[in-house]
Amino acid sequence: METTTMVPATALTVEAENADPKSQGRLALSARRKKPFRWALWSTLTVIGLFAFLPIYWLAVTSVTPNDQVFAYPPSLVPTEVTFEHYVSVFANPAIFGYLKNSIIVSVVTAVLSVVVSMYMGYAFSKFRFRGRKSLMYFVLSSQMFPQALLLVTLYVVFAQFGLLNTYQALIISFTTFTLPLCVWMLKGFFDALPDDLIEAAKIDGAGPWRTFHSVILPLALPGLVAAGLFAFVRGWNDFMFALTLAGPEKQTLPPGLVNTFIFEASAAWPALMAASLLVSAPVCIAFIFLQRFLVGGITAGAVKG
């Protein structure tokens, strides 16, 4: 597998494929596996599958239930009457797509920024030995140990002073910081797995550290960067409290936006909430289903050290 190191920019797909040859041994092995093993595999899959997908099924059923039947008890597991009025009403509500746009902007920029910041930091932790390195590493890891509700109070004031309240920047800066521990650790692991000879060779060729990193190391790390980026994306995608408080009504992302639209003072538009949630989550789910090979493949290389 050392050959990979020779492959530069196109490494993305190559890396992902490379995860597989290793499993050839396993493949041969599984052919020899006996029936009980297959049975264990499928029953595990079924049990976890029920746990994972029944709630989604119920989400979908609720989203097509007419308003006057939502609270019927006992609920009928198979919808007796299907309506798409809730989907229609979601499509008719431009605010939802505004939230979706905000969410995508915030999450994508958070992902990119997280990757940039953590690749530098991860590289420093991986390939440099300097005083305070270990303390700094633990500091990064421990930066999430303090209650965020309290950070929020001060951050609010700080962002207000810098005129950053009610902007995307406020959210992006916060989320990027909160993703650092995971992303730095993932990428450090990834860089750890790249041999130092690469750096030495580039040095002998006369490349400075800057060029070595950007044109030799980074292309090889691409799968890891994609994986880290996907994790950072989800952090921005999921947050409720910071998004509600820092983004203001104009820049609200989906989580507070959905609550604002469908959860009322003393009632909730359950079917419409479910319909909207399914609709807005669908593109991300589909994207992740296609990207999952990078997600797994990208962490893999760095996984040895963890």
Binding site: L45, I48, G49, A52, F53, P55, I56, W58, L59, V234, W237, N238, D239, F240, L254, P255, P256, L258, V259, I263, A268, L273, M274, S277, V280, S281, V284, C285, F288, I289, F290, Q292, R293, V296
Partner: peptide, 20 residues
Amino acid sequence: FFRGAFLIPWLIPGVVVSFL
């Protein structure tokens, strides 16, 4: 397919998960 499909619970916004 399953590797992708099992990601869905993670990708539905957390606050919606709570309400669900």
